[in-house]
């Protein structure tokens, strides 16, 4: 067995097997069929997305997708999920980010200093996302108002977990410029999501 096969075997034993169908779960038949359909329809596209975001691994994109389906199949409250494919993408991207040591460290560090365990976990929970859907709508709108460059910097830092140095190397922008652009982008997004707080009228 090659070293890579050996490593992948370990990863799979943790993330779960990679079957031809969605993972088993204690669910009703309709739910099982629903998840099996999702798996057949979206597995390939999600793998392509994750490979573009995090490379070929390890963890391999297939294992992240498998992990996302596993997690999805164990959720109690999928009734609130309006777009299952997008939801699976969120879970898988979050798993990919959690495989990066620096990101895990940053989340833990912030969590410790805010005294908020949720900051560390940043878990993808349907109930919480449903409750925050108005804010998410405002965020999606505001993202369209960012410049292409600002949007790229948000995607690279927040979703791909890239550092300023890496972005600078890839895109040719200075780190100071990237920092400024991210700051401005977050300001625009914050004002769209929480305009009252900015003027000091709410906590």
């Amino acid at each position: 067995m090659s070293e890579r096969q050996h490593i992948n075997k370990i990863v799979r034993s943790i993330a779960g097997r990679r079957p031809d169908r969605a993972p088993d779960h204690p669910a009703t038949d309709w739910r099982k069929r629903f998840i099996d359909d999702l798996y057949r329809s979206h597995r390939r596209d999600l793998c392509v997305l994750l490979r573009r975001m995090f490379g070929s691994g390890p963890p391999e994109p297939e294992d992240l997708v498998q992990g996302a389906f596993q997690k999805f199949s164990e959720l109690d409250n999928i009734d609130h999920i309006e777009n299952p494919r997008a939801f699976l993408a969120k879970i898988a991207v979050n798993m990919g980010l959690k495989s990066i040591h620096r990101i895990r460290y940053a989340r833990r560090y912030i969590s410790e200093h805010l005294g908020n365990p949720e900051a560390e976990l940043e878990e993808i929970d349907p109930e919480r996302i449903y409750q925050g859907r108005q804010q998410l709508g405002a965020l999606d709108q505001a993202m369209t108002r960012l410049t292409v460059k600002q949007r790229e910097i948000v995607v690279r830092t927040r979703l791909k977990g890239e550092t300023y140095a890496r972005i600078s190397q890839t895109c040719g922008w200075s780190e100071a410029d990237i920092c400024r652009q991210l700051n401005r982008a977050l300001e625009i997004l914050a004002d769209a999501i929480d305009p009252v707080d900015r003027s000091g009228k709410s906590g």
């Binding site: 997008a86 991207v93 993808i124 925050g132 998410l136 993202m143 997004l189 914050a190 999501i193 929480d194």
Partner: peptide, 14 residues
């Protein structure tokens, strides 16, 4: 930080 977290919850990631 709340804004940062929210970005990862969007349906528009892809």
């Amino acid at each position: 930080h709340a804004v940062w977290s929210l970005i990862g919850h969007s349906d528009q990631i892809e």
